[in-house]
Design a binder for these strands. Structure first.
Length: 269
DNA sequence: ATCGGGACCTGCTTGC
DNA sequence: TGCAAGCAGGTCCCGA
């Protein structure tokens, strides 16, 4: 999936088509996403969209009586379709617009979701989330408190949504490289000063990626179909065995959980 | 309480 | 050329 910058780029891309506009209806061709598409969404008809917001990697579409929660999973994307063409195999749903055209949700792996939430911003999936990485609440003291006493690898800690949201596999690796921290280092054995550097690195990596319009992966594209431009700035992700951009040593590949990790054994301690 | 691993699903790349 | 294995952006849930 898209990581947080890709979700934010998607939000910005679809917002002009939704905010202040009206949804005609939602057409569901394949309800079997991560969770079944909420049946309530099938009865929705001609409703105004008040706002298009984001919390972690969830897109929040506010309507008068509640909110739509959309997640893109690993392989999801949304694009605007002006002249509806025959939907493809993985075009699971359409948000039809009153002014014509539609927003088409595509997700080959079906790890994404579209859920009805009658209690805006209050939901079991949202209530457990940690702070946004770009919010003031995510600071050095906060991360230090979360890391204290933990033996868990720092990489998996910063990828834990209960700790901080929006740090996926690409940007976790990039942030740790920028901070010079070994991804396997136990979180509780990193000094407060180095955690402060890591917080700054996470913020910088995500902010830069958002500014660049996200990273173009295999099948991610923005709502307007154009690629993201952050890829050329990736230092370690997907570069196992290639030379470190800082010291030239070959980058090491390892795994944390089921996710691959690339790092420089010389620059990251 | 914390942690790691499995599960969910399809498609693309790699290697025999 | 064909086929199987391995890998991919996420994250919930389970058992140890």
């Amino acid at each position: 999936m898209p990581e947080l910058p890709e979700v934010e780029t998607t939000r910005q891309g679809i917002r002009p088509f939704l905010e202040g506009q009206r949804l005609r209806r939602i057409v569901v061709r394949e309800p079997r996403l991560r969770w079944p598409v909420s049946p309530e969404l099938l009865t929705l008809a001609d409703v105004p969209v008040l706002a298009v917001r984001r919390r972690a990697k969830y897109l929040l579409l506010d309507v008068p009586d509640g909110q739509l929660l959309m997640h893109l999973g690993m392989s999801g994307s949304v694009r605007h379709v002006a002249e509806p063409a025959t939907p493809g195999k993985h075009d699971h749903l359409d948000l039809e617009l009153m002014q014509g055209g539609l927003l088409r949700y595509t997700d080959p792996r079906r790890f994404g979701a579209l859920l009805w939430n009658p209690t805006p911003d209050r939901h079991p999936l949202l209530d457990v989330l940690g702070p946004e990485p770009l919010d003031a609440a995510f600071d050095a003291d906060y991360l230090a408190a979360k890391a204290r006493g933990r033996k868990q690898a720092i990489k998996t800690l910063i990828m834990d949504n209960h700790v901080v949201v929006g740090v996926g596999n690409i940007y976790a690796q990039e942030s740790l490289f920028l901070a010079g921290i070994h991804p396997s280092r136990p979180a509780g054995r990193i000094s407060a000063a180095r955690l402060a550097v890591l917080v700054a690195a996470i913020r910088k990596v995500l902010a830069d990626a958002i500014a660049a319009g996200g990273t173009t992966l295999r099948d991610f594209s923005r709502a307007d179909g154009k690629p993201g431009y952050f890829q050329q700035e990736l230092n370690v992700y997907g570069r196992g065995g290639e030379p470190c951009v800082q010291c030239g040593a070959p980058l090491t590949v390892t795994r944390h959980g089921q996710r691959s990790t690339v790092y420089c054994g010389r620059c990251q301690r």
